[in-house]
Simulated assay, not measured.
Amino acid sequence: MELRQLTYFEAVARYGGFTRAAERLHVAQSAVSAQIKGLERELGTPLFARTTRRVSLTEAGELFLHRVRRALDELDGARGDLADLAAVLGGRVVIGATAVVGSFDLPGALARFHARYPGVALSLRSGLIAGLLADLDSAEIDLVVGPVHHDLPSHFSAHRIVDEEMKLILPPGHRLTRADPVRFADLGTESFVCLSAASGLRAILDDAATRAGFQARVPFEAHSPASVRELVGAGLGVALLARSAAVAPGPAVAVRSLRPAPLHPPIGLIHHRDRRLSAAARACRRHLIAL
């Protein structure tokens, strides 16, 4: 039994005759007829009832057609998988990531992807979430790993990876280190260190302060969570940070819980909803969300 015989058989059944099937297949009608006759001899039963006016499936043909179409669908799927694999092996993926990715081991995940697909040109950019989303919007990067804020634009799609929580960090010896949790209302007289006014972290701080009845004073702006921690460690203020950044190696700071605790957005994998990912980027996305 040959693939060509199955393809010709399915075409005759689909188009209701040898002539139309031959036209669609761009072959001679005699070739189609010969292949079908050979298939029927091999199976030992007629697949079509032929009259001078029409061709119709026999009961055996109906049963056989179901199996043939399933086999051809599987074959088409296999061809697609192999085409995707070929594209992945020679593809390129650019990932943007914020400094805060919670407990997600992004370096380890990328290392495992690189070991599986060594031919993929894999690169990583870091930055704040707003800038990375702008790069995603302009197609400069393929995927973003970072906090998924509630106001994420609708043309982005996000898959949650891990949860994260917010902590307060204080300089060593600060008056509030004796309390745990710290009441947010008790921070009204403090100087805060934070990321830029356009950052998601600043929006969380401002909202939490407003709910506590005061306006947060931010005399010190930093470009990264690590810089926030350095300034707090030097005694220049207090700060809100994601737990993963608060307990990371760095200058000594006191880490405390807050009451009420501001919510930190979950860490997710974000891609552009309206732009089709390349085969390599799709493979990378599947790899990252499967971990």
Rank of each mutant, 00 (worst) to 15 (best):
D151E: 15
R125N: 00
P147N: 06
G127Q: 14
L110N: 02
F104G: 05
S154H: 15
H114C: 10
S138R: 15
H155G: 07
D163T: 12
L133P: 00
L122C: 04
L132S: 03
L106S: 05
V145Q: 01
A130P: 00
L133K: 00
F113K: 03
V162M: 07
P107G: 03
R112M: 07
F113E: 07
Y117H: 15
L122S: 03
D105E: 10
A111Y: 09
S157H: 14
S157D: 14
S123C: 07
V144Y: 01
V144P: 00
A134H: 06
A130C: 08
G146N: 04
S126R: 09
G146R: 05
Y117W: 15
D137Y: 14
L136K: 00
I129Q: 02
I169C: 08
L133R: 02
L136I: 05
I141E: 01
V144E: 02
D142F: 01
S103H: 14
F104S: 04
I129N: 00
L132V: 04
P147G: 11
L122E: 06
R125Q: 05
L106N: 07
G146E: 03
I161P: 01
D163K: 07
I129D: 00
V101G: 01
H159A: 08
L106C: 12
G108L: 06
L124C: 06
L133S: 00
G146D: 02
D105R: 13
L136M: 07
S138W: 13
G102W: 08
E165R: 12
P107R: 14
G119Q: 07
F104I: 08
L106H: 04
Y117T: 08
H155A: 09
L122P: 06
E165H: 12
R112T: 07
I161Y: 09
S154M: 11
G127N: 10
E140Q: 13
D105M: 06
